[in-house]
Structures are given as C-alpha cells and as structure tokens.
Amino acid sequence: MSLSDLKNELIYHKLEDRYLVLPATGATVGEAAKVLQVDPDAIAKSLVLNVNEQPTVLVLSGNARLDNHHFKEEFRVRPRLLPATEVQKATGYPVGGVNPIGLNNALPVYLDTSLKNLTWLYPAAGDEYHALKLTLTELITLSRPVRWVKVSK
C-alpha cells in the first residue's frame, strides 16, 4: 500500500484528519514520542516477525517488550524478526514506517494486550515522517487483527 492508498483508506473511514506529518523523524519509539509529545506507551509499534514462514505483524505499545516465553506460548515457535531487507517487500512499508493498516499480501495482524486501556495510539503511517492518531477502536477497525495476544512483558 502506498501513502496515497493509506490516505484513501482514512478518507473512506472519515479519519483523514488523523494523518499526521511529523516535523522530524519518528522512526523509533523514542523519536516518535518526542516529536509527538506523547508518552512512549502511546506509540503503537509494529514488529514484523517470521511465524512458521509467514510474515506476521505484531503491534505492541511503545514501552512493551516482546517476551520470548509468552510469544512461544501463543505461536508455538520462537520469535524471529523478519530481516530489515525483507520488511518492505512483505508489508509495503519500510522499517520505521510499518503500519498495521493496508499491508501487502494481507498479512496477519495481532494486537498485544499492552495496547488496551490507552486513549490514543500513534502508529507509523508509511515512513518515519508520518504517523496516525487513532483510538483503539479505530485501530481495530482499520487493521482487522486476527486476535488479541499477550506476548509482552
């Protein structure tokens, strides 16, 4: 999906005002939180993992850390991040801009329980200079997750 496709998806859902252009890079949780002036937990980071040879997107809150034990309980495999060189091919977005909405190849998306109870979430929006401001309900509607998982510490 291109940035224009993402914007069209937002327009369709009447959320075009939630697309943010950042004045500086927001490629990492720390950078995004600083430029958006929000708590790092509000950053919805998307990790792309290889789960049984299937690229899979896992969305966690900014301060949450992937827990190997919890991940293995949920997916029956050890967590393996997809190499950075393969992320854009799998998702349509570069590292630092991966967004759980409108992914190439209809990749499965899982939301970690660390996102629950946050008023606003700020996922990347296609590159390190764009983000979205969404409620949890809006993120669920737009990302169409397979299910909730508990894979964080």
Rank of each mutant, 00 (worst) to 15 (best):
residue 41 D to E: 14
residue 2 S to F: 00
residue 150 K to G: 04
residue 134 L to A: 08
residue 150 K to M: 11
residue 50 N to L: 13
residue 148 W to M: 11
residue 30 G to K: 07
residue 67 D to M: 07
residue 140 I to S: 06
residue 62 G to Q: 06
residue 27 A to T: 01
residue 121 L to H: 08
residue 127 D to K: 12
residue 113 T to E: 15
residue 37 Q to N: 14
residue 101 I to T: 03
residue 111 L to Q: 10
residue 31 E to I: 02
residue 21 V to E: 10
residue 50 N to Q: 12
residue 102 G to A: 06
residue 83 P to M: 07
residue 134 L to I: 04
residue 49 L to T: 03
residue 41 D to Y: 11
residue 92 G to Q: 01
residue 139 L to W: 09
residue 137 T to G: 14
residue 5 D to T: 08
residue 9 E to D: 04
residue 49 L to I: 04
residue 148 W to V: 07
residue 79 P to V: 09
residue 15 L to R: 15
residue 133 K to L: 01
residue 127 D to V: 05
residue 128 E to W: 00
residue 7 K to P: 02
residue 142 L to I: 11
residue 107 L to K: 09
residue 36 L to V: 01
residue 36 L to I: 02
residue 56 T to F: 06
residue 122 Y to G: 01
residue 147 R to L: 05
residue 131 A to Y: 04
residue 141 T to D: 14
residue 73 E to S: 12
residue 41 D to L: 11
residue 24 A to K: 10
residue 122 Y to S: 02
residue 36 L to H: 01
residue 105 N to S: 10
residue 26 G to Y: 00
residue 127 D to T: 03
residue 50 N to C: 11
residue 93 Y to M: 03
residue 147 R to F: 05
residue 19 Y to Q: 01
residue 98 V to A: 06
residue 20 L to H: 03
residue 5 D to P: 00
residue 28 T to H: 07
residue 5 D to V: 08
residue 130 H to L: 02
residue 124 A to L: 05
residue 123 P to E: 05
residue 86 E to R: 14
residue 131 A to C: 03
residue 150 K to S: 15
residue 50 N to M: 12
residue 136 L to T: 03
residue 151 V to K: 06
residue 96 G to E: 08
residue 100 P to E: 03
residue 148 W to N: 10
residue 111 L to M: 07
residue 45 K to T: 01
residue 84 A to S: 14
residue 20 L to D: 00
residue 49 L to V: 10
residue 38 V to M: 00
residue 144 R to W: 02
residue 63 N to H: 13
residue 1 M to R: 01
residue 48 V to A: 05
residue 121 L to Q: 08
residue 19 Y to G: 08
residue 57 V to N: 06
residue 136 L to V: 07
residue 12 Y to G: 00
residue 69 H to E: 15
residue 144 R to F: 03
residue 137 T to K: 15
residue 54 Q to P: 06
residue 47 L to I: 12
residue 6 L to I: 04
residue 37 Q to A: 12
residue 40 P to M: 06
residue 16 E to N: 14
residue 1 M to N: 02
residue 59 V to C: 05
residue 121 L to E: 12
residue 76 R to G: 08
residue 81 L to H: 14
residue 113 T to L: 13
residue 73 E to T: 14
residue 1 M to F: 08
residue 136 L to Q: 13
residue 85 T to F: 07
residue 108 P to G: 10
residue 152 S to I: 09
residue 29 V to T: 08
residue 87 V to C: 10
residue 105 N to D: 08
residue 95 V to R: 13
residue 84 A to V: 14
residue 49 L to M: 13
residue 6 L to K: 09
residue 68 N to I: 04
residue 134 L to F: 02
residue 134 L to D: 06
residue 144 R to P: 00
residue 15 L to S: 13
residue 147 R to K: 15
residue 15 L to G: 12
residue 45 K to P: 04
residue 18 R to V: 02
residue 113 T to G: 10
residue 97 G to Q: 01
residue 48 V to F: 08
residue 151 V to I: 14
residue 43 I to V: 14
residue 16 E to K: 11
residue 67 D to I: 05
residue 142 L to P: 06
residue 46 S to D: 08
residue 91 T to P: 05
residue 50 N to G: 03
residue 15 L to D: 13
residue 125 A to R: 02
residue 127 D to S: 11
residue 11 I to H: 04
residue 23 P to Q: 02
residue 53 E to Y: 13
residue 94 P to N: 06
residue 50 N to P: 02
residue 9 E to A: 12
residue 85 T to I: 12
residue 112 D to V: 10
residue 32 A to C: 09
residue 45 K to A: 00
residue 60 L to M: 15
residue 59 V to N: 04
residue 116 K to R: 14
